[in-house]
Design a protein around this nucleic acid. Structure first.
Length: 520
RNA sequence: GCGGGUAUUGCUUAGUGGUAAAGCUCUAGCCUUCCAAGCUAGCGACGAGAGUUCGAUUCUCUCUACCCGCUCCA
């Protein structure tokens, strides 16, 4: 499904049926924050549960952790996030473009620049504005204004203008402070004692006060796995190669948020750091990229043709990475990222080793130490990181499952969410055909059997049977069990399948087993 | 952050300078024995704030949120 309406239909369905709501909606909504409703919460949990099962429970070589969201400033200094997140941004005073100073076209200071406008009308207006401001030496030819002198070693990438705002730092990490004492008093005190300071000096002093208690919400879950490397390895006696996995919320002050829950400031990640011998890293990257792609197809039931692997170009690689693949999905707006599988080399462990002064190494008693020629060597493992977005995966699963069927023979069409049964929010609906003749009681007995097995089921007697089927189609319930007159006689029920609306009769004492088998 | 668009009940839409209509949904009841049936009754909305006005959901401004396209995405 990739037509333009799909997103709006899905967003509407998500709200109507309790998958996703706008955050703080009754107060007008909060930008890019979403709440998961009863069914959305189930769906997301199921997806994350599948990930945990296949990454942690089914593997001897990977263990899971659950680290705190608030982490010390030092962690982000070491990881490069505090520096990397504060890219100097500049606004163009002519065309209002905002851009990164370090990525703008470079020029020599003092050269004449051509400012190019979309049309000569705009150029004329701008020319008049320059003249009003008393800027001289400019000349206009059609839609280009020439003669402006570059004052810095770069110009606006959009229009070529050298008229630019000051460089401003934008830190994409959420900053907060720890401790109950508000530091505003310290700041006022500081202002009163430093009335003669320049703006820059005051700013620096504010930062100093702020930094005393500053902590950051993690912008990724990965760093905890590096920081706790020694503790995990030692407590669990891990042998190389091994992995540490984690799921949880991360936070980024994104400049732009878009596409519903695709990119939001608060999001949920499923990350795993796989530590290996340096010479294994290429092989492991290869292994994990295929492993992860197949997970979506085999475990989440996503259509193969909607998924692909894309290798990053050299210039696309992050500073810590020497090779990277993205698992991409064909969203309604085109191919876009779902998960990144990056080769992070020994960058992170080395960085934290340097900043913390603590050794973050693996001791291999079998390997020969090249310096001494004896057995036993300390080494810094290389890392392969499959980093998936749980929030993104939830959106992807919803899109992939979304289907609208035309009605045949004059009957109404239906909307179906074709989730893989194992991740469906409700696994089975138990429906009495009518609300009498002992059918509700019989149905509730069946409910008890499923509850006892921990299978999420729902009893539903509201409205006509056909409507109930359609409602469960729309929320992706794969199986409906219907109690009817015959049930009261021979203890069999109808099982009705979501995908093809087929019906079969099965004995009540077999239903739990039958459904269980279909959920594996 | 820029440009364009949108905002009326849970959903989809109508409409008006004198506070609003419909369908679906939902709730209660009746009736119903397998794919959104029917009947009766009921709940329920003009995103927020300011201005103009006797009176604003409607006009103006600001804000907020969402959508589309750029930009950004360590």
């Amino acid at each position: 499904m990739a037509d333009n309406d799909t997103m709006s239909k899905l967003i509407s369905l998500c709200k109507r049926r309790g998958f996703v709501f706008q955050s703080s909606e009754i107060y007008g909504g909060l930008k890019s924050a979403y709440d998961y409703g009863p069914l959305g919460a189930e769906l997301k949990r199921n997806i994350m549960g599948e990930w945990w099962k296949s990454m942690v429970h089914e593997r001897e070589d990977i263990v899971g952790i659950d680290a705190s969201i608030i982490m010390k400033k030092d962690v982000w200094q070491a990881s490069g996030h505090l520096a990397g997140f504060s890219d100097p941004l500049v606004d163009c005073l002519v065309c209002k473009e905002r851009f990164r100073a370090d990525k703008a076209p470079s020029v020599e200071i003092g050269t004449d620049c051509d400012i190019v406008f979309a049309d000569k009308g705009r150029a004329k207006v701008a020319m008049e504005s320059f003249e009003k401001q008393g800027i001289t030496g400019l000349s206009r030819s059609k839609k280009t204004i020439s003669g402006a002198k570059a004052e810095r070693n770069y110009v606006c990438p959009n229009c070529g203008s050298p008229f630019l705002s000051a460089e401003k730092n934008f830190n994409l990490m959420f900053k907060t402070s720890i401790g109950p004492v508000d530091n505003k008093n310290d700041m006022v005190e500081m202002f009163l004692n430093n009335k003669d300071c320049s703006k820059e000096e005051l700013l620096q002093k504010i930062y100093d006060i702020e930094n005393k208690s500053a902590v950051y919400l993690r912008p990724e879950t990965a760093q905890a796995m590096f920081v706790q490397f020694n503790n995990v390895m030692q407590s669990m006696s891990m042998k190389l190669p091994f992995g540490i996995a984690q799921q949880g919320k991360s936070f980024r002050n994104e400049i732009t948020v878009e596409h519903f829950i695709f990119r939001s400031c608060e999001f949920e990640q499923m990350e795993m750091e796989f530590f290996c011998y340096p010479e294994q890293s290429a092989e492991m990257l290869d292994y994990w990229k295929d492993q992860r792609l197949n997970w979506y197809i085999e475990r989440l039931g996503v259509k193969q043709e909607n998924l692909r692997l894309r290798k990053h170009d050299e210039d696309e690689l992050a500073h810590y990475s020497d090779n990277c693949y993205d698992v991409e999905y064909l969203y309604p707006w085109g191919w876009d990222e779902l998960e990144g599988i990056a080769s992070r080399t020994d960058y992170d462990l080395k960085k934290h080793e340097k900043h913390s002064g603590q050794k973050l190494r693996y001791f291999d008693p079998e390997r020969e130490n090249p310096e001494t020629g004896k057995k036993g060597v300390h080494l810094t493992p290389y890392v392969i990181e499959p980093a998936a977005g749980a929030t993104r995966a939830t959106l992807m699963v919803l899109l992939d499952a979304f289907d609208e069927e035309e009605g045949v023979d004059g009957k109404e069409g239906r909307t179906v969410l074709r989730f893989a049964p194992r991740i469906a929010p409700i696994k089975v609906a138990i429906l009495p055909l009518v609300k009498k003749d002992g059918m509700p009681e019989k149905a509730r007995e069946i409910v008890k059997q499923f509850v006892a097995k921990g299978i999420n089921c729902k009893y539903d007697e509201q409205h006509a049977i056909g409507r109930r089927y359609r409602r469960h189609d729309e929320i992706g319930t794969p199986f409906c069990l219907t109690v009817d007159t015959q049930t009261m006689e021979d203890n069999t029920v109808t099982i009705r399948y979501r995908d093809d609306m087929r019906q079969e009769r099965i004995a009540i004492d077999k239903v739990v087993k039958v459904i269980e088998d279909k959920l594996v």
